[in-house]
Nucleic acid binder design. Structure first.
Lengths: 212, 212
DNA sequence: AAATCCATCAGGAAAAACCCTGATTATTTT
DNA sequence: AAAATAATCAGGGTTTTTCCTGATGGATTT
């Protein structure tokens, strides 16, 4: 019997998926949660660890990305199968970096889900040709206009720059002098090859580094 | 036995919902479709008419709105229950105009769906206080935090402001003096109640006036 | 130990953004 | 005809952003 857990804020979807999966002989849903924070809470307790976690990306409080990252950082021995409607690109790559074992869109059929579950249970992963092709396409695109390497502090600043705060407000919030903020700002402009703050915001957004 | 049909492009969701509903004694899913055009096709044949149609809004080819309108226009004796993740917009209002019998978000539980199904079967409608309150709130919000009325030229400028162009570049592109651009800019800031260009960009984006 | 990174800061100066108080002309409303 | 509105522009002033050339102390690498 393979244990499965679900994290999805669409409760009906969760509930009905439970019914669907529990109908299978080999699988059993041991718990469901409706946001990322709950998920991490559950997963913190070893007794709760499922063999497979079906994870949605769009969730309140903490999203699926954060859950996946947390799992990766804490080396939880759980096979994460992402199940989302974000066909959106940037997420896929980050998910892969966090070592998820499969990526399904909600537009797939129940049959394909079963396939995926069995595959993950047996081989530890599930990537269809279509998905991998799509991934490849996107990685290719990414390779060209790469995401530059950012220092921690720069990442923080980047988030703040994508708000309507002035630099002095940001400096306060980050407990830095305006000079330092300016230094990081210049560095970000250069790394992203933009000429002003709006350009930076737009690029960061298109690369999926900020959510507007 | 009450007949139910489903229209939702998320196949797993559909499939699992079928499992869930067929588990009930009183309900039976007679067909499912994955886009609006298929739905209309099915519904054109009287033999296929279900008593309740669970309808998603976001679908390819034709969306749920169009299906609802078509049903309304052709006076099909089907109780439409909208089941969607669009918590926002104008959609709710339009759906009401098309006479749908209930409006559920996918964040509700399976239990609430059962309630809704029973209620629609028995009383012909299902609107919980929460839903109606939410609807009211959203209509109210739309009224208050309305999208301000913009002159044509202001709309154009708004688009340009959401790029990395400087004002002088925008002035050139719009064949205006910088003064005029500045006047419109001030007007936009006031109408949207923002204090700088980034704030404007963010607000315009959140109101769906620009696509970043 | 020297060189290289990293995170932090200073000061100055040019450019751009932001704010304000006006004005002209043409059109539309009253 | 007078008033209101729309679309356009000028000028000048303040603040913020952007760009530049530096510097210091700590950590890491060589």
């Amino acid at each position: 019997m393979i244990t499965v857990a679900l994290a999805d804020d669409h409760k009906i979807f969760c509930d009905s998926l439970v019914a669907l999966i529990n109908d299978l002989d080999d699988f059993e849903v041991i718990w469901t949660v409706h946001d990322g924070a709950e998920a991490i809470e559950k997963l913190s307790v070893d007794e709760n660890l499922p063999q497979i976690l079906l994870l949605d990306i769009n969730m309140p409080v903490k999203d699926g990305l954060e859950v996946a990252r947390w799992m990766d950082e804490n080396k939880k021995p759980v096979n994460v199968l992402v199940l989302t409607m974000e066909e959106d690109d940037t997420n896929i790559i980050r998910m892969l970096q966090y070592g998820v074992k499969g990526y399904l869109l909600k537009s797939v059929s129940a049959d394909e889900l079963f396939h995926a579950l069995h595959s993950v249970a047996k081989y530890g992963f599930y990537y269809t040709p279509e998905i991998t092709r799509q991934i490849g396409k996107q990685i290719g695109r990414k390779a060209k206009d790469q995401i530059p390497e950012l220092k921690e502090r720069e990442k923080e600043l980047l988030q703040h720059l994508c708000s309507d705060m002035s630099y002095s407000e940001i400096a306060q919030k980050m407990f830095l002098s305006e000079s330092t903020v300016d230094t990081y700002r210049a560095s970000l402009f250069e790394k992203f090859n933009v000429r002003n703050r709006i350009g930076l915001l737009l690029k960061a957004n298109s690369l999926g580094l900020v959510k507007l």
